[in-house]
Design a protein around this nucleic acid. Structure first.
Lengths: 135, 135
DNA sequence: CTTGACCTTCCAGTGACGGGAAGCCCTATA
DNA sequence: TATAGGGCTTCCCGTCACTGGAAGGTCAAG
């Protein structure tokens, strides 16, 4: 199977697949013409990678997960540890974004949004002390 | 004022301040010795930038906000538009992260996390169709 | 035999900096 | 006055996970 077919089947761009080979996540064989020749297990691995990436796992996480996936004798605890660490990062990011969202929504709400120059958004960004309190 | 003092007062690393100059967000004067010489308005602008960045505005957003900030005759609607677009991006990101979080939390919950190799997390990543449904 | 799709490698750029080297400048102290 | 140190300068590379594009080789169809 050529890279184009694999791209279609996995939903990953060909560029991405080449990149994954470059960093050693997959090792497709090569045909006499120099083309990459993918077998089913390559496609399967790339699908795995695509789904793990879409869950926000980093490339290094994926490398670890893939190694565990291919290790028949792994302990599920090892996988769970990686997943829990990632979940914690997600939670931290969500918390951060929620805080931003609250501040920003408050400022937007306070801004008339008309032709006049008065703007609480800019006023808040201009002050030295952490503004944004609704008091 | 030298860059070190400005870094301390604004909380921005000196590297970041130099970068902001490089991309034209600030234009500090130069002393005879080649050192950057910051005046109060520079410090104020950098503080503005730091706060806008901490709210997640992109550099290009910041450039626009800064221009509006310095334009006495701006319409608050222009500021509000930028802020609302950013809020929408934040909301999209939060939605995406919540979806990830739900899937991941579900998988983690289903994983025994012991010495045995059976692992729903890997099983889900291995299948072709979008798994993770609690059904 | 040509066209056009597909494949290859290599190089550069993204966003927003951070690390570190090489070298100049300024001040304080011996 | 010599020197030690800290701060400042520019420059270049590295980050993360790709993406775009150029230049050129390969293959199937007409």
């Amino acid at each position: 199977m050529n890279i184009g077919d694999v791209a279609e089947r996995t939903g990953l761009p060909a560029k991405t697949i080449r990149y994954y080979e470059e960093i050693g996540l997959v090792r497709p064989a090569r045909g006499a013409n120099g083309y990459r020749r993918f077998v089913e297990s390559d496609v399967h691995k790339l699908g795995f990678l695509g789904r793990a990436r879409s869950l926000g796992f980093s490339i290094e996480d994926c490398r670890g997960l893939l190694a565990l996936y291919e290790d028949e004798g792994r302990a599920s605890a090892d996988v769970k540890r990686i997943a829990k660490a990632h979940l914690a990062r997600i939670d931290a990011k969500i918390t951060e974004l929620n805080a931003m969202r609250a501040t920003l929504a408050h400022l937007i709400d306070a801004c008339a949004g008309d032709h006049r120059p008065d703007c609480p958004i800019l006023a808040d960004l201009a002050v030295e002390e952490g503004g944004g309190e609704a008091s």
